[in-house]
């Protein structure tokens, strides 16, 4: 565990808490893509199956359970409890366009052709693109509430910090995983446009509005 990895994890947990609090306090999930949230739930479900097979550390297990529980709670709040506030019409990204290519790619490019390894690889690929329905929703409505912007910034920062963690681990421990690194780079690139808008607008107190 190094500082980049820990900061990344904190940022990830922070993002999830921001999102849950936003939905809970405003009693609304307006502006949030349920499809991205479903994809994240699929990501955690397929990646953290190893909770039952491998023990890494208490920290690791607690975080995995936390991600599974909070993503389940988010999906529940969006599709059951506050269903009426869900922005159904704007959340029109077709997730099969992400699920199918990720599934095929994980069958072809993986470290080992076993069920657990392919599912892990699938979850890594899927996570890298799971935010697309959310970014698509923001681009369709042309704006995002500040709290949603903070959520996206924290969520995007998490993988960017992991990239630094991987650079550090490569140099210090000679540890690297090309699949995770490749997907992490893709994931971070997808946020770049948003990061730019966040820094130039939201941090200056303006609402995130896309240029017409």
């Amino acid at each position: 565990m190094n500082i980049f990895r820990f900061a990344g994890d904190l940022s990830h947990v922070f993002a999830i808490i921001i999102l849950l609090l936003k939905i809970w306090k405003t009693r609304s999930c307006a502006g949030i893509s349920g499809k991205s949230q479903i994809l994240f739930a699929v990501v955690y479900l397929t990646r953290y199956l190893d909770l039952f097979t491998t023990y890494v550390s208490l920290y690791n297990s607690v975080m995995k359970v936390l991600f599974l529980a909070t993503s389940g709670a988010t999906v529940y709040l969006m599709y059951v409890k506050f269903k009426a506030t869900y922005d159904h019409n704007h959340d029109s990204f077709r997730i099969e366009f992400l699920l199918i290519p990720c599934a095929l790619l994980s069958l072809v490019i993986n470290h080992d052709f076993t069920v657990m390894e392919v599912l892990w690889t699938f979850s890594i690929y899927l996570e890298s693109v799971a935010i697309l329905p959310q970014l698509f929703l923001v681009s369709k409505t042309g704006e995002a509430e500040s709290i949603t912007s903070h959520y996206l910034f924290a969520l995007g920062s998490y993988r960017a910090l992991y990239l630094l963690n991987w650079v550090y681990r490569y140099m210090v421990e000679s540890h690297y995983d090309l699949i995770a690194i490749f997907a992490g780079v893709v994931q971070t690139i997808l946020y770049c446009d948003f990061f730019y808008l966040y820094i130039t607008k939201v941090l200056k107190g303006k609402k995130l509005q896309l240029p017409a």
Binding site: R5, D9, H12, V56, K64, F67, H111, W120, N165, H175
Partner: peptide, 10 residues
């Protein structure tokens, strides 16, 4: 052996 990956990250 590089095929066996240590999955110690989240």
């Amino acid at each position: 052996y590089p095929g066996v990956h240590v999955k110690d990250e989240l």
